[in-house]
């Protein structure tokens, strides 16, 4: 815990296992952090509200408010509200429902799962980070910190990273292309890149890019049509077939 922690670059930390090459983990920014926190806050507040509603109905039903012990009426929502973050982070290695939603998780600075003590600490420091109101201290500090850390993360030596999930479909796509496509791997990567961003690009740009790419790779262009939308669709189809090796 005492040695200085080395971060390889501003928005990544490196996960190292043994002597093998490390994998970069992307650090989650202020946006994902806030998103996760707000989502978690909704869950916590919702639980407390539901609990209050239930007991309000019971009490309006005629029984006295002190007929039921506060250990039943007040303790559970208080515990839920304050222990939500530390307990969930500890039992699911740095994840809470809100963090899952934002696709992030808490790890130690070396990318490994953080210790129980670290999880407790980063949550105790919410007391300062949330000062004076609405997480102003934590927000300001992480705004200027190059890893977007709040005080609690600095004290506990933790970082929030973007979750990477290995999806079976990704493997299938990659191996089909490597097995059947006539293209070299780096050419496949360019085509796959374009397809990945297809929906984010404007139609005329992506059509022009696709045409240029197909020409450079010396692949046939689809039959010319008068309709730009049909043309756009045909170009996408052509690129997909190229990756799957369905083109000659």
């Amino acid at each position: 815990m005492q040695e200085r922690i080395q971060y390889p670059s501003d928005n990544h930390i490196q996960l190292r296992g043994g002597d093998e090459a490390g994998v970069d983990l992307e650090i989650a920014g202020l946006g994902s952090r806030s998103y996760a926190y707000i989502a978690d806050l909704h869950i916590r507040v919702l639980f407390v509200l539901v609990w209050i509603f239930i007991w309000t109905f019971v009490f309006f039903g005629g029984s006295s408010m002190f007929a039921v012990s506060p250990w039943v009426t007040i303790l559970p929502p208080v515990l839920f509200y304050f222990l939500y973050h530390p307990v969930l982070e500890i039992i699911s290695s740095g994840r809470t429902p809100g963090k899952r939603l934002a696709g992030i998780r808490v790890v130690a600075a070396d990318g490994r799962p953080a210790s129980v003590g670290a999880h407790l600490l980063r949550n105790v420091f919410r007391l300062i980070d949330s000062l004076p109101t609405a997480y102003l201290v934590g927000f300001t500090i992480s705004l200027f910190h190059r890893h977007a850390l709040r005080l609690g993360d600095m004290a506990a030596g933790t970082v929030l990273i973007k979750e990477r999930r290995a999806k079976a479909a990704d493997l299938a796509d990659a191996t089909t292309a490597l097995n059947h496509s006539s293209l070299a791997p780096e050419q496949q990567a360019v085509v796959a890149d374009l397809l990945e961003r297809w929906t984010q690009l404007r139609a005329e740009h992506r059509s022009r890019l696709a045409e240029t790419l197909l020409q450079r790779l010396q692949q046939p262009l689809p039959e010319p049509t008068g309709n730009a939308r049909l043309r756009d669709h045909a170009l996408r189809r052509q690129l997909e077939r190229l990756l799957k090796g369905e083109l000659a």
Binding site: E20, V23, R112, P113, A166, K167, A174, Q188, A189
Partner: peptide, 30 residues
């Protein structure tokens, strides 16, 4: 993963294997 990187450092297979590596690393080092 090392082999896949030597073939295509930023390719889809490398990225898949990296993601799988991160998951396996977590499971082994938890």
């Amino acid at each position: 993963l090392a082999l896949a990187r030597s073939i295509d450092p930023k390719g889809r297979l490398t990225r898949y294997l990296e993601a799988l590596y991160v998951e396996a690393h977590e499971a082994v080092h938890k």
